[in-house]
Amino acid sequence: MQNDPLVIAGVEYSSRLLVGTGKYKDLEETREAIEASGAEIVTVAIRRTNIGQNPGEPNLLEVISPEKYTILPNTAGCYTADDAVRTCCLARELLDGHDLVKLEVLGDEKTLYPDVTATLEAAELLVKDGFKVMVYTSDDPILAKRLEELGCVAVMPLAAPIGSGLGICNPYNIRLILENAKVPILVDAGVGTASDASIAMELGCEGVLMNTAIAAAQKPVLMASAMKKAIEAGREAYLAGRMPRKLYASASSPIDGTFFK
C-alpha cells in the first residue's frame, strides 16, 4: 500500500506495526526480529544500570539505534503517576530531548491491567510538560475519549492482558473506541498470533503494538515477518471493506447458460 501512512504527533510512519524489545534470547535475536517486523517505532524500558556488571556489554540502543528507529520509551513497571512521570523525564534526558513516550501505569501485578485513574493523572502531567503521550489503557470507550481530550497523541487499548496472547477479547469495545476517536487508536497488548493482528487492523485500528507474540514464538524472527504481513493484510482488508455476512449461500458461478438440467 502506497500513501497510507500512520501519522502520530504529525510524523508519518509507513509501518503500522510497533514492537517491543523485551523477552528476547539476546540482543542479536532482538535486532533480527525487529528488522524482520519492518517496525519503525520500537519500545524500550528504562532501568537502573547494573552496577559493576558486564560494563563492556553492548547497550540496547547501540543495537536498536535511535538514528534508525523511533525509540518509544515505556513506563512499564510503574504503579503510580509520579513514577511514570519520573521515568518519562529520565527517558527524555536519555534520548536527547525526544519526547514521544508510551505511558502505562499498572494497577495489579497479576493482570497488569492499567490503573486508569493514575493513568489519567500521569497523562495530564506529561502533556502539560510537553510530552507526546501514547497511552496504554483498558478497552473502555469513555476512558479512551478522556485520554484523547487530555491531549494524548495516540490511545492504545489492550486487546487482552499484557503477555497473555489471548487475542482480541472484546472487538465490540475496540469498535466503540474507534467510532469516537480523533487520534490514532492502536491495540497494545494481548495479540498472540498473526490472525489476531489482522483482526485488530480489520476493525480499523491504526496500528498494533506487540512484544511477547513475537519474542515468545518458537521462531521469533519468522513470527516477526508473519506479523508484518498480517498487519498489512488487515489494513488492506479494512480499507477494501469486507462483504456483508449472509446466512445463506450465494453461488459464485452464474446459473444462466448451464447445458444440463
Binding site: 517491543g20 523477552k23 524500550v44 524500558a45 537502573r48 540502543l61 536519555l94 511477547t212
Partner: peptide, 10 residues
Amino acid sequence: IEVVQAIGGG
C-alpha cells in the same frame, strides 16, 4: 543518584 539506561521492554 540514579543512573539509568534503555533495556529490552514492550
